[in-house]
């Protein structure tokens, strides 16, 4: 799936303040892109425009040459706070998005269980959401987002609420799944290390220091060609480069 931001601006509540202004960005098919930067520099705003929740004040966003107008099954999301449906059990959560695609319930559950297996939770298919740990919840959320076979996976600081160990496990799992299914991924994070370990490409964003009417801007666009799995010691140079920007 190819994504194109053409001169995209987002204005803040009709006031003369821009969250972001004149963003131009092209994301290639199956590319893993991290939007990296501190809180409040417009990363999540870009993500939510891309998802179709907010429309750009000016400019346009094209996904596979189609204008983004509203949310679509082809672009699903994973949030920091999981956003699972607590009244449904694990497999019902994963099968949620399939309801509008596949008539047959058994078929839906079959597909859902395939994705549950992928995230290692098949044995928890009938568990209640409230019984799961944070890491397990996020696995369910990833399975749910992937089950509808999106071409683009949007992740908004998905591992931000997890402890260090779980976070590492989840990063490895995500890379495994991504290499298997090859969706495009746009991954928002404020952790340099996380971006370094995951991304093909890091878009570095920060608060705009020059123009007081614009809140955030893109500072750098860095490609990472290092093969996975990576260790941070291979990436010291890039790390320093990013640290000097932020």
């Amino acid at each position: 799936m190819t994504i194109l931001f053409e001169d995209v601006s987002l204005q803040f509540n009709s006031k003369n303040i821009f969250v972001v202004k004149n963003i131009n960005l092209e994301i290639k098919d199956a590319e893993f892109v991290c939007l990296l930067g501190p809180s409040g520099c417009g990363k999540s705003s870009l993500l939510s425009m891309l998802a179709g929740f907010n429309s750009a004040s000016s400019g346009r966003i094209l996904v596979n040459n189609q204008l983004v107008k509203r949310p679509d099954l082809n672009r699903t999301l994973v949030f920091q706070e999981y956003a699972l449906f607590p009244w449904l059990n694990v497999i019902q959560n994963v099968a949620f998005g399939l309801k509008n695609i596949i008539e047959n319930r058994d078929e839906r559950y079959l597909i859902a269980s395939r994705y549950l297996k992928m995230v290692g939770l098949l044995s928890h298919a009938r568990d209640k959401i409230s019984e799961l740990s944070g890491g397990m919840k996020q696995r369910v959320a990833i399975a749910r987002a992937l089950a509808v076979k999106p071409e683009l996976l949007l992740m908004d600081e998905p591992f931000g609420a997890l402890d260090e160990k779980t976070r590492l496990d989840m990063q490895n799992l995500l890379i495994e799944i991504w290499q298997d299914l090859k969706p495009s991924v746009v991954f928002v994070t404020h952790s340099i290390d996380e971006a370094l370990l995951l991304a093909d490409r890091i878009i570095v964003m920060d608060k705009n220091s020059k123009d007081p009417t614009v809140i955030g801007e893109i500072k750098a666009d860095i490609k990472i060609t290092e093969p996975r799995p990576r260790t941070l010691s291979d990436l010291v140079e890039i790390r320093e480069k990013i640290s000097s920007i932020l």
């Binding site: 679509d72 949620f96 998005g97």
Partner: peptide, 20 residues
């Protein structure tokens, strides 16, 4: 996020009310 997750997964209008 709950609403957004559901919308991205295809739940709209009446469907969104009933299912989410």
């Amino acid at each position: 996020e709950i609403i957004r997750a559901a919308q991205a997964l295809g739940a709209r209008s009446i469907d969104l009310y009933i299912r989410v």
